[in-house]
Amino acid sequence: MEVIDEIKAKARALLENGQVECVIGYGLGSLKVRPAFAYTPAEVERFVWNSNCNQNLVNYLNDKKDRKVAIVAKPCDVRAINVLIHESQVKRENVYIIGMACPGMEWQGQPEARCRHCDQRVPVMYDVLIGQAPNVSVTPDDYADVAALEAMSSEERLAFWAREFDRCIRCYACRQACFGCYCFECVAEQLDPQWVGIAIDLPEKQLFHIMRAYHLAGRCVGCQECERVCPMGLPLSLLNRKIAKEVAELFGGYRAGADAAVAPPLATFRKEDDLE
């Protein structure tokens, strides 16, 4: 059976036997692959599976709290589910994971860089696994982009980021697309007290992006949804990758969502921790 037929068969069965009320998967849109929500077995017919299923759909679980749903999830997406479970946003028993063995995704006609370096082709957790892990040679991530950033002087780095952040229009697509940005009221929009003004100006943009990156420290799974949705082409994942690298170095190779049993380091406090 083709992979897509397996997805459809599983989704139909879950809806038919009432195990879930909705299956979140990928469908064919007007211009691209887009999220598809199937509430009936018939609606499963619109599902697709191909190398353009980049989007991390886990974000939508935040809208379906306490509902029984199934979700089509790649290995990186499953790590995001793990983060949400750790943070008590999602209950494991409410989510049926249709885990996908991932061949790697493409973006704008090219294989995604993150996929070329991805050594995790099978999700760390699933209720059903669909597809075969591809036999591809993986080049380990050398973090060359982060190294280039680190090689800059602090003045150069500030100028680099100021130039990038200056293009931001504060549309918040990055935040809204992020599974980890589920706050009811974002600090960037809170009025009382107001931490970030409404100005669409460099200081506010800078504050927002740096704050968001810090809020994702040890939580970002590297799905790069933020960067793909940005209409202004900001290199947002560079910021997240820098922090992920730091977290890995500081906390014994920790990778967000990789292991359901390991508590996130930045959500853990032990008395003997070195506070430096």
């Binding site: 887009r34 929500f37 504060r170 549309c171 209409p231």
Partner: peptide, 24 residues
Amino acid sequence: DRCLGCRLCAYVCPTCYCFDVRDY
């Protein structure tokens, strides 16, 4: 269901004109 609730559509739109006002 699939709307992210971001402001991208309004901000790239040539006709969307809604604004916010606040003292700084």
